[in-house]
Design a protein around this nucleic acid. Structure first.
Lengths: 240, 240
DNA sequence: AAGTGGTCTAGACCACTTC
DNA sequence: AAGTGGTCTAGACCACTTC
């Protein structure tokens, strides 16, 4: 494990088990350098990590302090702050949560010019298109409409769509998913979505319109996913 | 300006004016060190900044590449990726956007135990409470329900609530707003909200339940804000 | 084998607060 | 004036990819 990460996790433990209390000042950077036998820059990275995780705050000239926070954003580090980055399957890795899918469509199509633009492909390039609901313990949580460039992803089959597409990309093809750009909105469910999600027509859905990128910078996915409002909450930590 | 920030902005300019094209490899880290006459760690920080802004991606052993992205998240750096961190007024600083408020309530109250817990105050501590809609060019965008600890914020008056509370905290009291923890949901508008926002009852709202923290780690705000779904989009970049 | 980005050191120097 | 965190250097060493 990286040094700064080990230090960050050690301090996190001290916060969570109460040996560092809310609003308490942490040891100074120089003291932490001595405690962990590392240089200042490594301590700084550990502090940045804890800051991004929402656990501490630092004040130049003053010190670093444990944030007095109370569970609005829970367990920020175990899964990672960025919720759906690893995909729906990874997000619900808890063995008590059984993830399943209902696939309504899986085709190869010519996407709209707007989708082609988001995927940086030509207007006559094909994409895989799939529409599916994702369920946790047989309760529908989200409905997805996804396009992926055909040329980028050889061999995608319906069985992958029924299980986990991201697992096929990463473990089957060795692709590395690096980032997502998202637009997030509240929208009403249409009649078909309402039936598929087991809710009433026009009930609020939390929509993610997103483009996913590989570590090469190439877009691999354009998708719209709509999450049942009353069954899904997104958590977020923002630094000013 | 900081060196890494200057370098990042310079590379950003090269990407935006097309002298660095999508999917093109950037100069190597060592080359960038020579170009800008800085050390590796400073180049690394500039690359991290560009990565967080969604403009580039880096691959160990291979190089750094311009992301082939297309406007789903627009202008990530000018205002900052993190949208509402600076408050509604700062978010709509464009002079073509006239921000106004309609204040429905401004009182000093005893909040619910749950709100007291989020604010880390005692159950018999007072808070300011205000409810207002925020409008841009006279169109209602959001309705806010906000609690702030009385003891933390001496002298808050109705005129601040009608203008910008954050400006009073920062410029009037010298407080530094450091971070927000948020839960984000899609919820239906109730009858009163619908009237105040000029929409139909049960229309989808994008809800932010959030706790704001000062740089001391002390919570200064608990608020629920509900944004008209069809008038507001949240943008977000997530790294896997 | 050669080239790439990532982590880390020991320390200089700076910006900011007053523990 | 003393103490704090933040930035940056020059370079060692490492992990990973193959430009």
């Amino acid at each position: 494990m990286l040094k700064y990460e080990a230090i960050a996790r050690d301090i996190q433990s001290s916060i969570e088990d109460g040996s560092l209390r809310p609003n308490e000042r942490l040891p100074t950077v120089v003291e932490l350098c001595e405690i962990y036998a590392v240089s200042k820059i490594t301590v700084k990275r550990a502090m940045d990590w804890l800051t991004e995780a929402g656990l501490v705050t630092t004040r130049r000239g003053s010190g670093s302090y444990v944030k007095n926070s109370t569970g609005l954003v829970d367990d920020p580090l175990s899964v990672g702050v960025n919720d759906r980055a690893q995909g729906f399957t990874a997000e619900h890795a808890d063995p008590a949560e059984k993830v399943s899918s209902m696939v309504y469509a899986f085709d190869i199509v010519i996407p709209s010019p707007e989708i082609a633009r988001h995927l940086a492909i030509a207007n006559d390039d094909f994409t895989y298109y799939h529409c599916r609901t994702r369920l946790v313990n047989n309760v529908p949580i989200t409905i997805e409409y996804t396009h992926m460039p055909l040329d980028l992803i050889p061999g995608l089959k319906r069985r992958h769509v029924c299980a986990s597409v991201y697992r096929y990309l990463q473990q089957g093809l060795g692709l590395k998913i690096a980032s997502f750009h998202r637009a997030i909105r509240a929208v009403p469910a249409d009649q078909i979505e309402a039936e598929r999600l087991g809710i009433a027509c026009n009930e609020p859905l939390l929509e993610f319109e997103q483009v996913g990128y590989l570590d090469s910078g190439v877009p691999f996915e354009y998708s719209i996913s709509r999450n049942v409002g009353k069954r899904y909450t997104l958590h977020n930590i923002t630094l000013a």
